[in-house]
Design a protein around this nucleic acid. Structure first.
Lengths: 138, 138
DNA sequence: CAATTAATTTAAAACCATTCTAAACTACTT
DNA sequence: AAGTAGTTTAGAATGGTTTTAAATTAATTG
């Protein structure tokens, strides 16, 4: 994705294409699915020779989430993850290396869910499948 | 549960029945299913006129978890929850009031899960069903 | 295109849940 | 009763995240 279209993408969402936001958007929205935390993204950006404050990373991740460019995933590991896959979906979480893999919502069938309590509706369902290394000994 | 049997329960798990642990065990293991965080438990204990340091609450919750008296639930809301239901199970989480309700594992059927990545095995599956208030308008 | 305005970025402080530390205390053993 | 090992505690430290207020920069206006 060129810098030009990245700027356009931001403008499309009413976000000023600042140097910082363009850098982050270019990195995040290059087409490959990505899972980042504020810290991992900060590191990746630093590796590219760009210095951004962590506060800006947080601000930007939240802004991108608000306009629908990212999906926020809490409750996996210790930090908050942001996912470029914004469709409803679930996750494998590899506890050996804190790695996330998407599972399309259509790839899991959940049935026989008990009734919701009176007056409550289901807002969403999150499935986390924890993975660890297979051990061949025994 | 009487103080005597609470002390016995603790001794059974090789935990000294200190004043603090007896108070917490009596509160937690009275038969009703309970979901607590360190903060909610600290508040409940304080309401009973007993003063315990937060550090002790954390220590004790972790010790109870280690011996199998509690189950630790991370990733729901901002704090770590501890559940007196130690069976494998899932949760409704009411986002309007941070209230948890257990869903027995047997009450949910999950099928068609994609294959785990090569060399990985499933450690566990966590399902969180987020609830909010039903709105009748529209 | 210079000046103004409003949004953005930033360093640093603050926050909150949790853990650590090291000293004081207490249950159990002798 | 004395010793010792386990436990509790206040307070400091930690880690992820948010807030604050000042400095900077993008967009707008004249």
């Amino acid at each position: 994705m060129t810098t030009q279209t990245t700027a356009d993408l931001l403008r499309l969402h009413k976000l000023r294409p600042t140097r910082q936001r363009v850098a982050l958007a270019a990195l995040l929205f290059d087409g490959a699915p990505r899972h980042v935390t504020a810290e991992t993204l900060h590191g990746q950006v630093k590796d590219m020779g760009i210095t951004l404050s962590l506060a800006t990373i947080y601000n930007t991740l939240h802004q991108f989430t608000k306009v629908g460019l990212l999906k926020e995933i809490k409750g996996i590991g210790d930090a908050t993850w942001f996912d470029t896959n914004i469709d409803q979906h679930h996750h494998f979480f590899d506890i050996t290396n804190d790695h996330l893999i998407d599972i399309p919502a259509s790839s899991i069938t959940i049935s026989n869910l008990p009734d919701s309590p009176e007056g409550k509706v289901i807002e969403g369902i999150d499935v986390i499948v924890r993975l660890s290394d297979k051990h061949y000994s025994e």
